[in-house]
Design a protein around this nucleic acid. Structure first.
Lengths: 107, 107
DNA sequence: TGATTACTTAAGTAGGTGCTTAACTATCCG
DNA sequence: CGGATAGTTAAGCACCTACTTAAGTAATCA
């Protein structure tokens, strides 16, 4: 997933597909490269599950699988949660330290 | 950013740093590769802005820059928003179509 | 001071990535 | 049918990536 989105061209394709399904040629038109190159990018995107496609006649129509964006989102969220937990523990620790210091002083 | 997170080893390092700052050796310890290899991954992560580090004496301490995760999150969110807008437009279109059909029938 | 620790730098290498062009297949249209 | 259209397949190539080992440097410590 991250690998698939690591390439600017592939992100552009995903951005395009965000506005609705498109054929291979439609996706390739604005891109400054040959059609086979675009097809290769689409293969990477399909392998990652971010894009699905089906061929009707001689036309292949591609669409974005928005659900798959959850995979990235979930990983990010998990990092954030871990970070928050750490800050909480740190807060507790500092609070306890301060309490102990006060206690010590009072003695 | 996406490129930095595209590598499993680098994601593991980020996961580790999520639980708090760590030295280069601490990060390298659980990883099945040489120390220079880990340092190279850290350089990629620092270049992306996801990790910051400072050297005190001979020890380099690395920490996660959680704020930088926003960059990825924002991109994902933007894709979702575009998608939602598309579905709304599609809904409106279908509603209008149905209304027009009814109108036509009534005539 | 001399050994140990904690990295750093450099050079080399196998395999991967993002393209290209050329040739091909399969459909659709007049 | 025959030609245009839409995409596929294959081979090749420059560059990049993720490692490696070997040889540094710069603290810290017995």
């Amino acid at each position: 997933m991250f690998h698939a989105l690591a390439d600017p061209t592939r992100r552009r394709i995903v951005e395009q597909l965000g506005t609705g399904p498109a054929t291979v040629s439609q996706l390739a038109a604005p891109l400054p490269m040959s059609l086979p190159a675009v097809v290769q990018h689409l293969q990477v995107l399909e392998a990652s599950g971010l894009v699905e496609s089906q061929k009707t006649g001689r036309v292949r129509t591609c669409r974005l699988v928005v659900k798959r964006l959850d995979t990235v989102q979930d990983w990010i969220d998990e990092r954030r949660r871990t970070w928050e937990r750490r800050l909480d523990r740190l807060g507790d620790f500092l609070a306890t330290e301060t309490a102990n210091e006060t206690e010590t002083k009072e003695k």
